[in-house]
Simulated scan of single mutants.
Amino acid sequence: MVNMMYVAAAIAAIVILILIVWFFTTWNRFIRLEENANKSWSDIDVLLNQRYDMIPNLVKIVGRYAEHESGIFQEFAKARQAAAGALSRGDVKGVAAAEGLLSGMMPRINMVAEQYPDLKANANFMDLQNKLVALENQIADRREFYNAASTNFNKAIQMIPASIVAGFKGCVRRELWTVAAHVRENVEITF
Score class of each variant (00 low, 15 high):
N36C: 09
N36S: 15
N38D: 14
N38L: 02
N38Y: 10
N38W: 05
K39D: 15
K39S: 15
S40N: 01
W41C: 02
W41V: 02
I44D: 05
V46I: 15
L47A: 14
L48D: 12
Q50R: 12
R51K: 14
R51I: 08
Y52Q: 12
M54A: 08
M54L: 15
I55W: 09
I55F: 07
I55V: 08
N57R: 13
V59G: 05
V59Y: 10
K60L: 04
I61R: 13
V62Y: 06
V62R: 02
G63A: 05
G63L: 00
G63W: 10
R64T: 15
Y65M: 10
A66I: 11
A66N: 06
E67Q: 13
E67F: 09
E67S: 13
H68S: 15
S70N: 13
G71E: 15
I72C: 10
F73E: 11
F73D: 12
F73M: 12
Q74A: 12
Q74L: 10
Q74F: 08
Q74D: 15
E75A: 06
F76M: 14
F76A: 00
A77S: 09
A77K: 00
A77E: 04
K78Q: 03
K78T: 08
A79P: 02
A79I: 06
R80A: 06
R80E: 02
Q81S: 13
Q81I: 08
Q81P: 00
Q81M: 08
G85T: 11
G85C: 06
A86S: 08
L87R: 02
L87D: 03
S88E: 12
R89V: 04
R89D: 11
R89C: 07
G90Y: 05
G90M: 05
D91Q: 05
V92R: 07
V92K: 09
K93Y: 09
G94F: 06
G94M: 07
V95G: 00
V95Y: 06
A96L: 01
A96S: 05
A96M: 02
A97Y: 05
A97L: 09
A98T: 04
A98L: 03
E99L: 01
E99D: 03
G100I: 04
G100H: 04
G100W: 09
L101F: 09
L102A: 01
L102Y: 03
G104F: 04
M105V: 00
M106I: 12
R108Q: 09
I109Q: 01
I109W: 01
N110Y: 13
N110R: 12
N110T: 12
N110I: 13
N110S: 13
M111E: 13
M111P: 01
V112G: 00
V112C: 03
V112K: 04
V112T: 13
Q115V: 08
Q115F: 10
Q115S: 15
Q115M: 10
Y116F: 14
Y116N: 11
